[in-house]
Structures are given as structure tokens and as C-alpha cells.
Amino acid sequence: MLRPVVVGVDDSAESLAAAEWAAQEACLRDLPLRLVHAWNWSPHPASDVPADAAAVGAAQRVRARAMLDEAETRARAACPRVRMTADPLEGPASAALLRAAEQAEVMVLGSRGLAAFTGVVVGSVAQSVAAASPVPLVLVRAGEPRWACARVHFEGEVTSKGKPERPCADVVLGLDLADPCDEVVEFALTAARARGVRLRVLSAWRSPALYTLGPGELALAEKPRREEEWRGFQDAVLRSWRGKFPEVEVVGTVVEGRIVTPLLGAAEDACLLVVGRHAHAGHRLGQHNGPVTHAVMHHARCPVAIVPYP
């Protein structure tokens, strides 16, 4: 049985963008799509919900179904041939979505990112799910068309070789050379292959502090030599993957210092940014995301895939 692409929806613009992205991802992977909306009875319901407890539950179910119906319409428009189901989930949103993720191939949520002036941030639900999801989680923002290059696969705009007529943005992978896990690399390459685009791989290195070097080691601290060593290390990591995905053009880059700024710069022209997250045992709620994951969740302008690895 195929595991679906699961997308959590609510009444936000980001959620509807996530439903569109998830529908196209399901089509690209030839997987079913499952729309879910998590709701829970609240002692302080929305102003348009009746105060009576029984009526509150009924009204919330109606609202949940309306949200799912709207998301289904948007998803169907994004990919008419997608196989789709829609289910309301009862319970606290984070816990309900994580239970749904256990049966998913990929989990998708809307994300507001971080507005520099308003201070609007990725919601607590998205942060909790991102920190504990057992499967790759993709966060999608509203109003960013870069990811839409996948639409050419559904509009007939392809050449005889099956490639899009118009260029699409790259998939970008932030690769930690200290822990180059297979799950993250494979997810990024699979995404690039499905879209018929390049994979750009960015890795960072740092010069060792001079006081940590022993006699005769100062020459190794020279920037050109150190950079060349790290570039060779990255190429060695990617060499076997190039053989497994010969149809994907892989372009590697190493940068000195912190990876966040160049990664966000590359994401400006990307259709998807992929980073890894160490999957701590138990997938407990309340776990924290690492500094790189935290930064790209809040600031990247393209969809962000957070891939757990052992």
C-alpha cells in the first residue's frame, strides 16, 4: 500500500498554498494525497461558534469540513488527476498531525515564515511537527511562485525528451559534511529528478583556530588548501550519488564560515530547499530544531524540506 503525501490544512492562505504544493508533489511521486484538518473543542471557541458544548462540537466539525472542501478544490485545480482523501482529525493539532505523519511518505504544512517588521513567525504547531516528524516535512509559504515550476509537468509543456520547455529553479541541498546522511541526500536528488532540474549542494567549512594547531600544521591552515580539501571531501560524498541519479546534474559548492547566509541566498532562486534534522529517539513534542533548520524555517522564501535522519 502506497503511503500518501499528507497535508495539514486550516483557513490560512499558507495552508491553501501547502495543499497546492502537496497535490503536485503527490502527482510527481505518483502517490495519493491526504488532506487533514486537526480540531479540538476549546473552552474559548471562535466568536461565531455557539457557546453550548454540543453545538460547539458540531459547529467545529462543520468548519473543519468547510476548510477541507476549500483545500480540496485548490488541490484538485493544481493537479486534476491526483488521488485524494480528506479527513478531519480530533485532538490537539500537533499530536494529531504527528499521528498522521506516521502513515505518510511526506508531511506538508503551511508556513508564515518570519516577517522582519511584524514579527510574525512560523506557528507553534509547525515548529513542534518540524522538530518531531518521523518523515520529511515540507513547509510552504503563500505568495511565492518559485515552486510552481512543477506545473509544467501537468500542462503538456514538455519536449520530446520529457524535459520542461521553460527552465525551472534548482533544488538546493544544505549538506553537513560532518554528517552527510543518506536520507537527506536521497530526498533532495529524488525531488530534483522528479522536477527535471539541477541539484545545487552547499556545504560549509571553517579554518581551525591557530591555537589548536601543532608544530608543522600551520601550512594546513592556509585558506586555499583547506578549501580545496573540503571541496574534495564534498565531491567524494556526492560521487556515488551521481552514479545512482545520472539524470540529475549535481553542482557542489563549499563556503567558508556559517552556512545559513549562503543557504538562504541560494534559496532565493530555488524551487525547494532541503536540510537535515537529527531524529532524536521518541519523536517527543517540544524538541528543538537545530540552528540551521530554525533559520531556514523562518527566513527561506521557497518551500523548505526538513528531512529526519538517525
Rank of each mutant, 00 (worst) to 15 (best):
P43V: 07
G113T: 06
C271Y: 00
V120E: 11
V254P: 02
V9R: 06
G174H: 07
Y211V: 15
D269I: 10
L137P: 06
P310Y: 10
V56W: 13
L35G: 04
P32G: 07
V248E: 05
S133D: 03
V171L: 08
A132W: 00
L97S: 04
E155K: 13
A169P: 04
I306A: 02
A178C: 14
H288T: 11
R112I: 00
H299T: 03
P167W: 00
C168F: 03
C271D: 09
M1R: 08
V121N: 12
S203K: 12
V275H: 00
V129S: 00
A59V: 03
V152E: 07
W205A: 01
V82C: 06
E144S: 11
A22H: 00
Y309K: 01
V185T: 03
P262S: 04
V275F: 00
Q24H: 06
M297N: 01
V274L: 00
R151Q: 12
P92M: 10
L213K: 10
P134R: 05
A266L: 08
S47N: 10
L114S: 11
A132V: 02
Q60V: 14
V62P: 10
C168G: 12
H153P: 00
E144C: 04
L89A: 04
G110N: 05
G8T: 03
L114I: 15
V296L: 05
N289I: 10
M1C: 11
S133Y: 03
C79M: 02
A300G: 03
V237W: 02
V255E: 10
Q127W: 12
L220C: 03
A101R: 00
D10I: 10
R146C: 09
E249W: 05
D11F: 06
F245N: 01
A266C: 14
G8D: 01
H280M: 12
W241R: 00
G143M: 00
A93R: 06
A236S: 10
S133M: 03
E155I: 12
V56T: 11
A23S: 03
G265H: 14
H278N: 09
H37E: 10
D176G: 02
L109M: 15
V304S: 05
V185P: 08
L137G: 04
N289P: 11
R146D: 09
E217K: 12
A116N: 06
P180F: 01
E144N: 07
K223N: 13
E165T: 15
E222T: 15
V49K: 09
S47A: 10
A305G: 05
A115M: 07
V138W: 01
A66H: 02
L210G: 07
K244E: 12
E72N: 06
G276T: 04
D176H: 00
R195N: 05
A270Q: 10
A54N: 14
W241Q: 01
W39R: 13
A305P: 05
R74G: 04
P4M: 12
R83H: 10
R83M: 13
A126F: 06
R99E: 15
A115V: 08
A219Y: 13
G91E: 03
D11V: 15
